[in-house]
Design a protein around this nucleic acid. Structure first.
Lengths: 126, 126
DNA sequence: CAGAATCCAAACCGATACTG
DNA sequence: CAGTATCGGTTTGGATTCTG
């Protein structure tokens, strides 16, 4: 019997890895969900995401814009209005994201049970 | 015409949000992919993930174990062997993860183009 | 082999103040 | 309104050393 090694490998420079780092963060998924129904202005997005700071929102929007997932439109009124809109590319991401979201909803109870069991085991060793 | 607000809202204590924070991190997805074909020992996993440190691997495995996504089996040989195996719960996550992974592979070119365009625009304003 | 412990630097994070 | 700039504080992350 030979040694077991993994058949899949992930290299440090694997392009999908670099991209995953970009999109699989705390806020990106939620921002996209919020923009799914139509373009929104900066503060409207902010109001939809309880707990996000202005700084985090700005940074995440910039990153999404750079990756072509949202588009930023400046409307030259006074004071200026800025609208963020999901792009076609971003829209194509909604499917995968939704699958992940549905998984969390469906499997939450089982995860909670696992956590409780794990924490109980930790307790008893203490 | 009424003000546009978002119809979806994410609350800070939304359970799916808490779970998403746990599973959508840099290494979890890749560890799961590596374990998909069968159980592996600690250092075999490590060899499959170029760039991961022992500390990061330990931490991520603990988290996955706590959430019931992988199982840890200690084999009392000398020196000890420890095998990590994906659980049924973890296996059910592979689908959503794979969808995300496929998306990155398919849309990488478009993302790169968007980045180049964005960075070029930044240059010209400087 | 599979970690735990420690140390230090770097990245992040929220709060605050300021601006066109 | 939609940001930028700045500043501590905390968290993270790597490198190293040690152990059953």
């Amino acid at each position: 019997m030979e040694m077991k090694e993994c058949s899949v490998e992930f290299h440090a420079n694997c392009p999908s890895r670099l991209l995953l780092d970009q999109i699989a963060d705390k806020w990106s998924m939620m921002i996209l969900a919020v923009l799914a129904d139509g373009p929104l202005r900066f503060n409207a997005i902010k109001r939809g995401l309880e707990g996000i700071t202005q700084k985090a929102l700005t940074q995440t929007l910039r990153k999404l814009e750079r990756n072509g997932i949202v588009a930023r439109h400046v409307i030259a009124t006074s004071p200026v209005a800025v609208e963020y809109e999901i792009t076609d590319l971003g829209r194509s991401l909604l499917g995968p994201f939704k699958a992940l979201y549905m998984w969390t909803r469906e499997n939450m109870p089982e995860v909670e049970a696992a956590r409780a069991a794990f924490d109980a085991r930790m307790e008893e060793t203490t």
